[in-house]
Design a protein around this nucleic acid. Structure first.
Length: 495
RNA sequence: GUCUCCCUCGUCUAGUGGUUAGGACAACGGGUUUUCAUCCCGUCAACGCGGGUUCGAUCCCCGCGGGAGAUGCCA
């Protein structure tokens, strides 16, 4: 049997970590089995649907490099793959169920349903859900409702006796008494659209889906879906419920834990390979020790057995670590391209970049890549190259263990050594030696000499390596900034 | 409330009827280094609890506790 799995998101919001994790698991499982990965858009909720969400779905999967074998855009033998385009289908199947006595029309208004719900809660009796008010209407009663112009919904007739079991690859058998299954859930809404349960089961069957890998939040409705398969006389697929992705507080990961939209991670400068790698490791492992995987490797070595049962907390810091690792491993030319939009957004370079700017970006990448966790870090790291905001507070120039006078002297003498050395073309290590020598004379730590010079040049105590900074800034600008700082100290001294 | 699922360091996880319970992130400390990073080394840190079964349980069984999810004309 050829494996066919699907990712079936609802375009009612941006693609988030949890959703994409499900997509990845399905995708990797399909690839590892030589099967097919389908994409199906479950846009049956007209209230919450947005075009933006749908576009975000496509954009996100493309960015991650996840291609679907069948689905919207690419088509396939079981299309259409967008549920709103299969509108008529669901109604037919739902009516068939009614004819077979497996489902029935319900004319209850949402007001009445709400009232029933409130009464059940208030009476402290068990909350039982729908009271099956319309389960056994006579033909006359139905006619009367129809005459009032009430549009009915179709509900599944859930048995009140017995129990239903389904098998989960990870969890084993999961059994639920039928009386505990949500009583008579709606299959077809009054607007004619199917609910998730109906559309999902019909499409999975019609599209030949063999394995359903979805989040554990669906476990409680597993028996209901089995009941539906039985009502249709269809063979249910293999189930594999994925552990949920949680936030630090142990609750389902959501916006209040931080960014969850993949689009936001992308904007901050996370690389797709880092997202894929880390997200796949949330709830899955190969052997407990290996943790670097490319997408291509996962397409081969992913296993269902490696999926964990327990929910897993999403660790933003570990993602950062992965991203840093991938940035450092990336080609400089690629990084230069990736970093450019951030420099443009910051207004540091023009859009599009000029040839000179491009050249500068190429040169700054090597020293910046060791220091970035996310691509957007490039802005703070290189600000001194594009914005000159001199440090006026002389105490900033003073390193630990030094003082104002020594700092002034270190700046004057040190920068003289530095600038003349650079002009004469001496190599950096010999200039560095001379500066270290100076620090000994002044009886300060090495940094007592370097810090004032660094602050003068980069306007900050935290910067790229000194010689890198100078090379990027240019000798002329370097000299200008140094002289300005020397003047600052002289003025202060005289005043 | 009811139903279902889950439970190894703070976090992600490996693992076995007998192990010094392993790795990674984080944290902390140290080294390299002109700052910050990177890199390297090290430290801290876990089998939820109580009963059984057993010569021996983290591992098998039962109970408890804790956590989560579901309970919609949302998925």
């Amino acid at each position: 049997m050829d494996v066919r799995v699907r990712y079936a998101p609802s375009p009612t919001g941006l693609q988030h970590i949890g959703g994409i994790r499900t997509a990845l698991f399905n995708y990797f499982f399909a690839k590892s089995q030589g099967g097919k990965f389908l994409l199906r858009v479950e846009d049956t909720d007209r209230e919450r649907y947005t075009d933006e969400s749908l576009q975000d779905l496509y954009d996100t999967l493309e960015w991650l490099g996840i291609k679907w074998d069948e689905g919207p855009v690419v088509g396939g033998p079981c299309g259409p793959y967008i549920q709103s385009e299969r509108f008529d289908l669901y109604k037919q199947y739902a009516e068939q169920l009614v004819r077979d006595g497996k489902a029935y029309y319900c004319y209850c208004s949402s007001e009445r349903l709400e009232k029933v719900r409130q009464e059940q809660i208030a009476s402290k009796s068990e909350y039982q859900g729908y009271d099956r008010h319309c389960a056994n209407l006579t033909e006359e009663e139905r006619k009367a409702y129809e005459a009032q112009g009430i549009k009915p919904v179709i509900r599944l007739r859930v048995p009140t006796e017995g129990k239903t079991t389904f098998h989960d690859v990870l969890m084993g058998d999961i059994t639920r008494k039928n009386k505990d299954v949500s009583p008579d859930p709606i299959l077809l809404k009054s607007d004619g659209f199917p609910t998730y349960h109906l559309a999902n089961v019909i499409d999975d069957h019609l599209m030949g889906v063999t394995h359903i890998m979805r989040a554990q939040e669906w476990i409680p409705s597993g028996p209901l879906h089995i009941l539906l398969y039985e009502a249709f006389g269809w063979e249910p697929p293999v189930y594999c419920h994925l552990p949920m992705v949680m936030g630090k507080d142990g609750q389902k990961l959501s916006k209040r834990h931080g960014s969850t939209a993949v689009r936001d991670f992308r904007a901050k400068g996370y690389l797709p390979e880092a997202i894929i790698n880390y997200v796949t490791l949330v709830g899955w492992s190969l052997d407990g020790s290996r943790e670097f995987f490319t997408r291509e490797e996962l397409e081969k070595c992913f296993t269902m057995e490696g999926i964990h049962k327990a929910p897993a907390v999403f660790d933003y810091k570990k993602l950062d670590w992965f991203n840093g690792q991938y940035i450092r491993a990336a080609e400089n030319s690629r990084l230069a391209e990736l970093v450019t939009p951030y420099l443009i957004d910051a207004g540091f370079v023009s859009d599009p970049v000029t040839a000179e700017e491009k050249e500068l970006i190429d040169r700054l990448v090597p020293s910046v890549k060791e220091r970035m966790k996310v691509l957007s870090d490039v802005v703070d790291l290189t600000r001194f190259l594009f914005r000159d905001v001199p440090v006026e507070d002389k105490s900033v120039y003073v390193s630990k263990g030094s003082d104002i006078d020594k700092t002034a002297e270190a700046l004057a003498k040190g920068s003289a050594i530095l600038l003349s050395g650079l002009r004469e073309g001496k190599d950096e290590s010999s200039i560095e030696e001379s500066l270290v020598e100076l620090s000994k004379q002044l009886e300060v730590k090495v940094n007592g000499v370097f810090q004032p010079i660094r602050v003068a040049i980069t306007n900050s105590t935290v910067s790229l390596p000194l010689f890198d900074s100078i090379r990027l800034l240019g000798l002329e600008e370097t000299e200008k900034r140094i002289n300005r700082s020397i003047r600052l100290f002289e003025e202060n001294h005289n005043g």
